[in-house]
């Protein structure tokens, strides 16, 4: 088996808050191979965005990150000094944010911002950088790319700005792209186009991608691997087809029942819900974090939760197959 491009073991993120420590991410593991797309899906506060920032080394100073291992193609990210991280960011791994309006600098032209990273990281001239920028803008489907270089971000629509962000992330041909809710702020038709673009480019350039999203529809369509995150833990991980076809953790199934499925869910019928709320992440959680909302919770859920399933498709639950078959039988 090939060596994964990114390998994370026991990643923990702690944020000091007024009344103690908020354990935002509680010991998660994942691997990502070249050319693969991993979707981290979860609701707000699950720690998915912090996870991506932790990989990029972009967490704030007050936030504490620890990991047994965080290996990016032989570089140990837990020990990398700021200079090494700066070299990696932009050149070998880059990030696409949710809100293209705030992540582009309004004071500089599109061309300046596109070429900046390339000029910084690679020994290329200004002309070559501009040529590369035009090439990429065309690749992300922007017409009249040459003339766009002298435009400012406010002159572009939201969809175009997000395309520029993608082109910017691709300038140095990174091996890893982290996209945090890249299409959430966009309209549905634009969302489909942007996702398709990311998907195709990833395949074409053999890039690994981590896509952070709350949208299960997006996950199902673009992910190779899925990681479902709840209260700072990965409750279920596996190939997209397995996770969606045989969702084993009760939380994953609960989420899937919440969304109306055109053609499958009866129109106007009552949708599934997950009662209760996410537990407070300040302090320790005893046993399974989902037990306060889980229909199958029992006393044993307060103890250590085993990881079940195969190496490919794993989930954390004390019940065999997370009561999936029992649930399907009653349905």
């Amino acid at each position: 088996m090939e060596k994964p491009l990114l390998s994370v073991r026991n990643l923990t993120i702690d944020i000091p808050v007024g009344g103690g420590t908020l354990h935002a991410v509680r010991g998660i593991d994942f691997d990502l191979n070249r050319g693969e797309t991993l979707c981290i899906v979860g609701e707000s506060g699950s720690g998915k965005s912090l996870t991506s920032l932790a990989v990029m080394g972009l967490l704030g100073k007050t936030i504490r990150r620890t990991a047994d291992r965080m290996d990016f193609d032989g570089t140990d990210l837990t020990r990398a000094n700021p200079r090494t991280m700066r070299k990696l960011r932009g050149a070998r791994m880059s990030m696409i944010f949710q809100e293209p309006m705030t992540s582009l600098n309004p004071a500089y032209t599109i061309g300046d911002q596109l070429t900046e990273a390339l000029l910084l990281h690679k020994p290329v001239g200004r002309e070559a950088a501009r040529a590369r920028a035009v090439e990429l803008l065309e690749k992300v489907g922007i017409t009249a790319a040459e003339s766009r270089l002298s435009q400012y971000p406010h002159q572009l629509s939201g969809g175009l700005r997000q395309r520029v962000m993608i082109a910017m992330a691709l300038m140095c041909e990174p091996e890893l792209i982290i996209a945090d809710e890249p299409t959430t702020a966009l309209d549905v038709t634009i969302q489909a186009q942007i996702l398709r673009l990311l998907y195709d480019l990833g395949r074409e350039m053999n890039m690994a991608m981590i896509l952070i999203t709350h949208d299960l529809g997006v996950v199902a369509r673009v992910a190779d691997k899925v990681a479902v995150m709840y209260a700072g833990e990965l409750v279920e991980t596996g190939p997209a087809a397995d996770v969606f076809n045989t969702p084993s953790h009760p939380y994953t199934r609960g989420l899937l029942r919440c969304i109306p499925l055109p053609g499958k869910t009866e129109r106007g019928s009552t949708l599934g819900t997950i009662p209760g709320i996410v537990p407070s992440l300040v302090g320790d959680i005893e046993g399974c974090a989902f037990r306060t909302r889980c229909p199958y919770a029992e006393a044993a859920c307060r103890s250590e939760i085993p990881r079940q399933g195969s190496a490919g498709h794993a989930f954390r639950c004390i019940h065999e197959d997370g009561k999936r078959q029992a649930e399907e039988a009653t349905a």
Binding site: G276, C294, A297, C301
Partner: peptide, 14 residues
């Protein structure tokens, strides 16, 4: 449902 600790999830929230 007897095992769910918080009978009133709202209570926790507010």
């Amino acid at each position: 449902m007897a095992h769910i600790d918080n009978t009133d999830p709202l209570l926790q929230e507010i």
